[in-house]
Every structure is written in C-alpha cells, then in structure tokens.
C-alpha cells in the first residue's frame, strides 16, 4: 500500500481503500474513486500543493494532504 503523493507523475495505481470524513469520502466514491478502480497521477501542481488525478476518464484535483484518504497499490 502506498500514498498517491509518493508516486511519480504518469504512474498508475489501483485504489485499495478510501478513508476520510463521511461527506468527503462519499463524494470521492461518487466521483468514481472506489476501491478497485485505477487512477493515474497526471501531475503535481508545485505551487498549488495539489495532485491532479485521472479517474474513469475525468481529471480531478485533490490537495496533497487530503489525498492521503486514498490508499493505493502502484501498478
């Protein structure tokens, strides 16, 4: 298991677990971040402190610390 923040841009991973506060977690899952789903780290926004992720064809930004709610297995 790993965190998205430790991955290299362009790398893909499978989501293992989704944590976090209920409404955040629910919204993440509703947007497609479900256990078993593949995500790709598109880029890190150095000045923005964000991670841009691709999930189910969509691009979604999460803050680096808040993205720790997603536990992943790099592929």
């Amino acid at each position: 298991m790993a965190l998205l923040a430790t991955m290299a841009p362009g790398q893909a991973a499978r989501i293992e677990a989704v944590g976090g506060e209920r409404s955040f977690r629910r919204r993440l899952m509703e947007m497609g971040f479900l256990p078993g789903t593949q995500v790709r780290l598109v880029r890190r926004l150095a000045l923005g402190g964000l991670l841009e992720l691709e999930v189910r064809g969509g691009h979604v930004n999460l803050r680096i610390d808040e993205a720790a709610a997603l536990q992943v297995q790099p592929l």
Binding site: F24, M31, L50, V60, N61, L62, R63, E66
Partner: peptide
C-alpha cells in the same frame, strides 16, 4: 474548510 475536490 471543506476538503477540495476540484474537477478540471
């Protein structure tokens, strides 16, 4: 604040 989920 609310965690950020920002779609591009």
């Amino acid at each position: 604040g609310a965690p950020l989920i920002l779609e591009l």
